[in-house]
Computed example of a mutant assay.
Amino acid sequence: MIDNNFKQMIEVIHLSEKLKFELRHSWLSNGRQESVAEHTWRVSLMAMLITPHLEKDIDTLKLLKMIIIHDLVEAEAGDIPAFDTLDNKEAKQLKAKNEEQAILYIKELVGGEQGEEWYHLWHEFENKDTFEAKVANALDKLEAQIQHNEADIDTWLPIEYDMSYMLGRHTSFSPVLEQFKNVIEQEADDKINNTTRSG
């Protein structure tokens, strides 16, 4: 007889498959649209690369858990681009409501202490309560900009030109992440200026 714990694990894994076909408003350098799963993987890679350079000690396992759990919610709630909620209070509230329902569902699906842990880690990320949460949030935003920088600029919406210079609100708490942000912002600036000159 199969242990119910393993059946629950398989259900969570089946849910996560949706992230492989849930598309983001980001395009790859080869012209294909990016999936949420691909974004999450690279945010996790960035976390592994940056943690040795941060000015404070960080719980890397907790950081990686936060990154993965944060995006798992999108398997239920879908991915909403940041520019859709930027200046839209109603859209922001609806997104928050849908994501809260999704994390509650995931909490029950995972079950037990682990389900509780995932629920609290998701909220910690959302509220930026800790250094780990702030780093996770910053990396999430920085990866999105890196992907925009790699994509054909024809895929950019007008608002994304401005958003390329708004990353500081997510990185200002950390001198190391500020430096990292500056490199990414410079790439965006070069891309915009090169396109303007060639156009």
Rank of each mutant, 00 (worst) to 15 (best):
M1S: 13
I2G: 13
D3G: 03
N4D: 06
N4T: 13
F6Y: 11
K7S: 05
Q8N: 13
M9G: 05
V12F: 01
V12Q: 02
I13A: 13
H14M: 15
L19K: 01
E22S: 06
H25N: 09
H25P: 04
L28H: 10
L28P: 03
R32I: 11
Q33R: 15
E34G: 06
A37Y: 04
T40F: 02
W41K: 14
V43L: 11
S44I: 12
L45P: 04
M46C: 10
A47F: 03
A47Y: 02
L49C: 15
T51Q: 12
L54E: 04
L54N: 08
K56D: 09
K56T: 11
D59I: 10
L61R: 15
L63W: 14
L63P: 03
K65R: 14
I68K: 10
D71P: 04
L72N: 00
L72R: 00
V73C: 03
V73H: 00
E74M: 13
A77D: 02
A77N: 01
G78W: 02
D79A: 15
D84E: 07
L86N: 11
E90S: 14
A91V: 13
A91C: 13
K92P: 02
K92Y: 08
K92Q: 12
K95D: 06
N98S: 08
E100D: 14
Q101W: 08
Y105C: 01
I106K: 00
E108G: 10
V110D: 00
G112C: 03
G112D: 09
G115K: 00
Y119N: 04
H120S: 06
W122V: 00
E124H: 07
F125P: 00
N127M: 14
T130G: 07
F131Y: 12
E132H: 04
A133L: 07
V135H: 02
A136K: 05
N137V: 08
L139T: 03
D140K: 07
D140H: 12
L142E: 06
E143C: 10
A144W: 05
Q145L: 10
I146L: 11
D152R: 02
D152E: 14
D154R: 14
T155V: 14
T155Y: 06
W156Q: 06
L157G: 08
L157V: 09
P158K: 07
Y161R: 09
Y161T: 08
Y161L: 11
D162F: 14
D162Q: 12
Y165W: 12
M166H: 12
L167I: 05
T171V: 12
T171W: 02
S174A: 12
L177P: 02
L177N: 01
F180N: 00
K181E: 15
V183I: 15
E185L: 08
A188K: 03
D189C: 13
D190N: 06
K191F: 04
I192W: 09
I192V: 13
N194W: 04
R197W: 14
R197A: 14
G199K: 10
